[in-house]
Design a protein around this nucleic acid. Structure first.
Length: 373
DNA sequence: TCGTCCCGCCACCCT
DNA sequence: AGGGTGGCGGGACGA
């Protein structure tokens, strides 16, 4: 039985411990990547992922659509995705760039090009011509930002989160810009909105995409220098000689707090009573510090321009010496900032990270593994 | 106040 | 017909 919030009084009462930060798409993506970047799982079931992460299936769709767009995942079958890993991102980005340049080489030179028109300006005509019955995986459908299509299916696909993600990435890859304002991105990707409400909806999708890409550190949210308007900065490969494109899913965009629980169950808005141990999901600031420090000391890149290492403990040779020398005492840091998880799954996850970290550290420093009690 | 974005309804599409 | 998928926008949260 379904209730609208207004119809379900028991649902409208704010759960006093609820924090939307704990439920953010970026954090969820971080947890998702942490869960599956361990290498053991090749096939990811959506139900399983939703269950493990303690979220609704719908949220998993948001994430996998974006991740699929940058090559991390590939759809295998209904309800199933194949984990391609972070190594697949560079190739996906190259393909996107080639595709973008091939499709509209000139339009990327001018962000305000008027030829960038909104295909949905005439959306309401509800024309029913040529219903497309092709597969949802039909990648042959042009991804062009500027392509004009008419069928209902194509217009639907045109607005899909996955395609929007690809086009968003193309903006950076093909237009040689580091920072693009939220407004410009929305207009370029989705066309000039006819009304503020339409634009608002469009911007929401950009936030969704940006949160996932931010959690992979492909982009970061920032502001334009002049107007201080919200903007996105491309971090990906650019200016890093491909080497520091590593991602630390362990920590999120600076704004977000490090997830304290691999699941988000305890903060289910409106619907879940206060759990026995509320403390286990609290104190995000403290955890933010921990995660930042951890990530700073771990580093994120790889010296081999041809390969990319992602994930929380990706080997980083680039600038490694400096990093190590700047890090006073990794052993004490690790012990000092060792999170105390109450969640068994998260505890195991953390143990895994510690093992990976010890292994990596000993490898790159040619030391014996660190003894972390 | 306004930027941000969670949440879930429900239309669409596939099997 | 039923279930999977995901567009969409209301409205809550946080700065």
């Amino acid at each position: 039985m379904l209730f609208s919030p207004s119809e379900a009084p028991e649902l409208s009462a704010r759960h006093h411990a609820y924090s939307r930060k704990q439920k953010s798409l970026g954090l969820l993506c971080t947890n998702f990547l942490n869960l599956y970047s361990r290498g053991a799982t090749q096939v990811i079931g959506l139900d399983e992922a939703a269950s493990k992460l303690g979220v609704e299936r719908r949220r998993i769709y948001d994430i996998v659509n974006v991740l699929e767009s940058v090559g991390v995942l590939a759809r295998k079958a209904k309800n199933q995705y194949t984990w391609k890993g972070f190594d697949a991102i560079p190739k996906a980005l190259r393909d996107l760039k080639e595709e973008g340049l091939r499709e509209n080489p000139s339009n990327f030179d001018n962000k305000n090009n008027n030829s960038v028109k909104d295909n949905e300006d005439n959306d309401e005509d509800d024309s029913d011509c040529n219903p497309n019955t092709g597969s949802q995986n039909d990648t042959s459908i042009p991804n062009g930002i500027l392509k004009s299509t008419t069928s209902r299916f194509e217009r639907r696909k045109e607005k899909s989160l996955g395609l929007l993600t690809q086009n968003f990435v193309k903006l950076f890859l093909c237009a040689n810009v580091d920072v693009i304002s939220l407004d410009d991105a929305a207009k370029l990707l989705l066309g000039d909105a006819q009304s503020s409400s339409v634009m608002r909806t469009k911007v929401r999708r950009l936030y969704d995409i940006a949160n996932v890409l931010s959690s992979m550190e492909l982009i970061e949210k920032t502001h334009t220098a002049d107007t201080r308007k919200p903007a996105f900065r491309w971090l990906g490969l650019k200016g890093k000689s491909d080497q520091s494109m590593g991602v630390l899913p362990l920590h999120e965009s600076r704004k977000r707090a490090f997830g304290t629980d691999v699941t988000n169950i305890c903060f289910k808005r409106n619907k879940i009573e206060s759990l026995v141990d509320e403390g286990k999901c609290q104190n995000p600031k403290e955890n933010q510090i921990k995660a930042d420090q951890l990530s700073t000391s771990v580093g994120t890149s790889n010296s081999d321009p041809g390969t990319y290492q992602f994930g929380p403990f990706a080997p980083k040779v680039y600038g490694f010496e400096e990093k190590v020398s700047q890090t006073p005492d990794l052993e004490s840091l690790a012990s000092t900032y060792r999170p105390e998880y109450h969640n068994q799954a998260l505890r195991e996850l953390f143990v895994h990270y510690m093992e990976a970290w010890k292994s990596w550290y000993s490898e790159v420093t040619e030391k014996k593994p660190i003894q972390i009690s």
